[in-house]
Nucleic acid binder design. Structure first.
Lengths: 201, 201, 201, 201
DNA sequence: GATGAATGAGATTTCATTCAT
DNA sequence: TATGAATGAAATCTCATTCAT
């Protein structure tokens, strides 16, 4: 997808690196301290750049948060749903996505935490919110498709169904991160199956 | 309303009122703008008091947030589970609590929003967190009881079950508040039944 | 001591009492925490009156501090030099005053501390400063008298002499209060004699 | 003055300068208005820096006051006692220190005033108080040495002796600064000699 | 382009004073 | 007259952003 093997790579790879270094550092410090809890100089230090440098790549903290949000949203969505075509059986697809989400929370807890953080909401601009909605609509469409194919129950609107499942997932992971529960793979699988049954007709 | 019948009625209730006026105003402005987003003078103006007055009732913004959190938690928990003894049939109890939660989000959206806000987390002190856990444990114990009585499925740990249901509920309501969905009573009831089935054996 | 058995006692003894209660409380709390360190409500509580009451007797904190300062200055000066007429031998008089000052610091450390506190200086008005100078002039005049009678050395101006002795005394007592020294009566007497010798011709 | 010869000279001395500019400005405004009487923005303006800049060099007003106090204490002590070894005759040493103290009050009245100010006492931390005591002990040890060599009288403890002399000096200078006296060099010298005689055996 | 010291608007909190009761 | 809850101006301190180097 990101196949730019051209001259551009020669021109400003350093620049691009720095931008990403900042985004990654932002992700981590925001996940730890919340967007409001982290001053820009702290972020700069974590990123190993000067404070002013951040402002060469992002016009404001708000802009940085938005770009981070959108970058992550896209990456994550791509990751969750990659290579799941119509040929994959519905429950298998469901399980796959569920496990990918779990894997994501394990492999990159900072990224997951940042996305789940409500702390950034006041910073989000129209573009970010639009993206959010668009991606949600895609998944809703997917659910609707399953309903139409008789895979999912039809007595609940797809957006409601999705909302329930997504909320269940998010809260399960949050409970673990907040130290309320410790989740075995067994727990995760049962939760997944329960959610599947909640949807299935 | 406040017809000051006797001298005593004037003094005491007045002060009590002011504390509650501040808490109520705080609830509203925090629900709207987030804890971090609302300066004390703004809260003061909303409450119709001087800035300094707030500090007569709460030693700091942090203390105010914590008291608000605990007050609400207690009120809400009492409200949700009031008059639901062992004589109430499990599903009826489940439905009742669900509806009470829904009613609460409708009647006092600000209170619900504040509780759901993650924004206040960095402010919460040990006491608040302890209360939070204690209340959670109570509900988990309830779920466990249902499992032992064979009402709920036993292949999923009660805290996992609760986490799923609670997350489903919270996210459903959030989706509506964020404008992603509009919920009919029908939607709410189907969601409730789906969650019940998720738990039931 | 304050035997006013007249009609005045009938008219406003309560008022007068309260005024003095406030002054006394002010003395104590200011001596403990410094003028800047003590909020009016704290003073009020110590005095056992309402905050507002203080303002019925003193137009401002500044005025209170000034009246306290002047009251004390007068009392103290009266106490130090009472009944020391020309018939008292100079060194005896010197010793007597020295001991009275010491006694004062022991009997009413708060009063002494308040007077010595620099903390109140920014509050002092013209009247207080004038009183201060006037009382100083009186003592200087006394020293000058001793010089003219050949009791004190004449090669140092009386105000310089007094300044040295007064400074020596104040610092000695301060050193004790600050915990740098502990003073025996022996120490006090030797210090007194040393100061006398410093003045004597 | 700041002719920036090399790149290194630019960076480091600059920052150092600013810290010292702030300390100097603090010294002056505190000497004039007392620590409590001077808000940080006023200090900032006097120093020619932004308010926030002060907090890059000092974590709080309290810390600033303490660093100022200790810096001054050290400088002043060094200045007073520099190059006075055992080879200097006692009275000559005494006179030298006395004159250096006088010179200091003339050359840098703000610094002297700040040190003499009681206003900063509530701000002083343990480190500052420890320094204070340590320096006092050094001088007391010196006095004791004079006693042991038979230079000073032995019937008064050295700390009492020092307390008297130091108090005499401080009060003399204060009297002048407060406008009670004007001191000629003659006055100063006589006062010095009187204090010497007070100590001498 | 990169830096990070400097900035000052804005946040939280205090406290002398007022005024309704 | 006495009260003390209420006030808001002013204090301390923070941090997103700028700009000289």
């Amino acid at each position: 997808m990101d196949t730019k093997l051209t001259a551009e790579k020669v021109r400003k790879p350093r620049t691009k690196d720095k931008r990403e270094v900042i985004l990654r550092a932002a992700l981590e410090v925001f996940a730890e301290g919340g967007v409001n809890g982290v001053p820009m100089p702290v972020l700069a230090e974590r990123a190993g750049v000067g404070t002013g440098t951040i402002y060469r790549y992002f016009v404001s903290k708000e802009a940085l948060v938005n770009e981070l949000f959108r970058d992550l949203k896209k990456t994550v969505t791509r990751r969750f749903f990659a290579d799941i075509g119509p040929e994959v059986a519905p429950q298998e697809a469901f399980n796959l996505v569920w496990q990918r989400m779990i894997d994501f929370t394990r492999e990159d807890p900072a990224a997951y935490r940042f996305l789940e953080l409500q702390d950034h909401r006041p910073y989000l601009d129209e573009q970010s919110r639009t993206l959010d909605r668009k991606q949600l609509r895609n998944v809703v469409a997917h659910y609707r498709g399953y309903q139409e194919r008789g895979v999912f129950r039809q007595d609940i609107r797809p957006e409601v169904l999705l909302s329930l499942v997504w909320g269940a997932f998010v809260n399960l992971v949050r409970a673990e991160r907040d130290g309320y529960i410790e989740l075995s793979q067994q727990d995760i699988d049962s939760a997944r199956d329960a959610c599947w049954k909640l949807c299935a007709s």
